[in-house]
Design a protein around this nucleic acid. Structure first.
Length: 271
DNA sequence: ATGGGCACCTGGCTGC
DNA sequence: TGCAGCCAGGTGCCCA
């Protein structure tokens, strides 16, 4: 589910509740996530304080006194702050009981999410080491995307979803950014003009920023740390709008499949 | 190096 | 009502 805006929304929601708090206890109910959770992880984090709540790509990083908890929400994960005595629901996989009396509770029906405890520099972890620059930072710019697209024949939509080239852009925002940039999703990356690349960089940044501003996109399961859904769904121009009129020109939106994922676009607005 | 396809999981919806 | 089939905010890995 969650793309960068949903993860960032979760980070912001969680941050004021966790930073400066101690971990009284961690309870691990299900270690079979995307990767098996280290058996003794609860023992390792108990008693530590949470110093920072950061994000890298779609990973949440909780920096503790002597290590970092690295969490990924996968397709269906959500992390909430709740009073510790709230009863468990199906697919609640762990609790991090805080000194405030609250708990950080992770729920993930599909179990594509993950949890690691890292000592040392998180950026050196194999899952983070090869990630591209953050899309909302200055390193992701027209020069960068231009250089990276020159020799690549993949469809631009699939390139946007390649985390070695651009991070944080998933299936929703790839379609939305391409609509905003007026570029057809099937275009070969190397055939984009400099002008299109420039538009695309701006579109990615603005679509992600707007989505963060309204708390992300809720389609099915996603909720922020406070349990509230995100409101970007109301601002989607093409995603999940097959056959519905384009919000700009009224042409019916089209759906196609790329790399086993659905793509949506307007055949009139996008060239 | 690049690109394509599969796998990992559960739940909700559709149509027979 | 039941059930098979398909689809879903991700991404690492294996193969050509």
């Amino acid at each position: 589910m969650p793309e960068l805006p949903e993860v960032e929304t979760t980070r912001r929601g969680v941050e004021p509740h966790v930073v400066g708090r101690g971990i009284v206890e961690m309870r691990l109910y299900e270690k079979r996530l995307r990767w098996k959770v280290q058996e003794d992880l609860p023992d390792l984090v108990a008693g530590q304080f949470i110093r920072h709540a950061k994000r890298r790509a779609k990973y949440l990083l909780l920096e503790l006194d002597s290590g970092t908890l690295m969490l990924h929400l996968g397709m269906s994960g959500s992390l909430r702050v709740l009073p510790a005595d709230v009863p468990l629901l199906p697919h609640d996989h762990f609790d991090i009981i805080l000194s405030s009396g609250n708990t950080l509770r992770f729920n993930d029906p599909r179990r594509f999410g993950s949890l690691h405890y890292i000592t040392g520099d998180p950026e050196q972890h194999p899952l983070l080491a090869k990630l591209a620059p953050e899309p909302l930072e200055a390193a992701f710019n027209a020069d960068y995307l231009w250089r990276v697209t020159r020799r690549r024949k993949v469809a631009i939509k699939q390139l946007l979803m390649n985390s070695q080239l651009v991070v944080g852009v998933g299936n929703i925002y790839a379609s939305e950014a391409l609509f905003k940039a007026k570029v057809r999703p099937k275009r070969q990356a190397c055939n984009l003009t400099r002008q299109e690349v420039t538009r695309l960089v701006k579109a990615v940044k603005s679509v992600l920023s707007m989505a963060i501003k309204v708390g992300g996109t809720t389609l099915r399961d996603y909720v922020g740390a406070d349990g509230q859904p995100g409101y970007f769904r109301q601002k989607l121009f093409v995603y999940e709008r097959n056959k519905q009129p384009c919000r700009t020109c009224t042409t019916p939106v089209r759906q196609l499949t790329q790399g086993q994922r659905s793509t949506y676009y307007c055949p009139t607005c996008q060239k």
